[in-house]
Amino acid sequence: MSKQPNKPKGILKNKGNPPPTSTEQPTPDPREVAIKHARIIHSRREIEDQISDSLIELSRFPSTRDSPYNASNPAPADAESFKNLIRLYQPGDYDDLIEERNSNGLCGYTLCPNPRSRIAGGGTFKLVNFGRKDFNIVPTRELEKWCSQKCAKRAMYVKVQLNETAAWERAGIASIQIDLLEEGTDTATTAADAAKKLEKQAENLKIEALEKTAQNARDLALERGDSTENGKTSKRSIKLTIREKSVKIAPEAPSLDIDSQAHLVTEGYKSTFDPNSETVSQENKNTDKKETISDQ
């Protein structure tokens, strides 16, 4: 017998390293954690407050309503501050802004100085473009949001650029810029702008395609079971040898001869019938006996 009783061997897998001792990773002070999270919440609240303040400000826009400026050609200062303030909005906030402007009696588009249109007569729906191809039935409420269809288009042009992600996640990103719908005031600049826009679109498309191929490759690797390490796909380490079956005779097409019992064969085996077998029913045996008696 061994002098020292062996420790019973565990059936559980060995964990490589013992758990790190508490001295290596000091537990953070709960108070500090709480303060940190409170700060995060506080900054979020601040951004929300900022948005609601700017909403009230934008609901009174534009600040200059003089004759040279209108919705298609807004005062530069107004356009600039609108672009800056609208940057952090979510589409829902933008809807609130439109509603707020309407309750102030203004057109929903922020840079438009006109009052909102009021459609005479009752009815919740209205026919637009009657007798034309783009005929439509629209709720009156939708129509009354704007002074004209053009303003609706301009406002929607801004709305589609807004992002659903939370405002505090976007606050630090300077690259988010909102463009206004360019108006056809002078053709030269608009043509140049159009070319620039096309270029930008093509670039975006290229980037998108690249991203897509990379994603596809990643997915395929995952499907194959390739491990990815540091974003680099490693080669599989399975040895593959292809062994051909040796063929001795030339292959022959199956033929159908008259005497063949191929139709009785199931999976290469032909079932046989043995009359003396125990499994044969008693009745059949009896009839066999009778026959032998009559013969005698």
């Binding site: 609601s52 009230i56 809807d95 802004l97």
Partner: peptide, 11 residues
């Protein structure tokens, strides 16, 4: 009441 106005109340 507009929805922005409703958001003012909890403040």
């Amino acid at each position: 009441v507009s929805s922005a106005a409703k958001k003012e109340i909890p403040k």
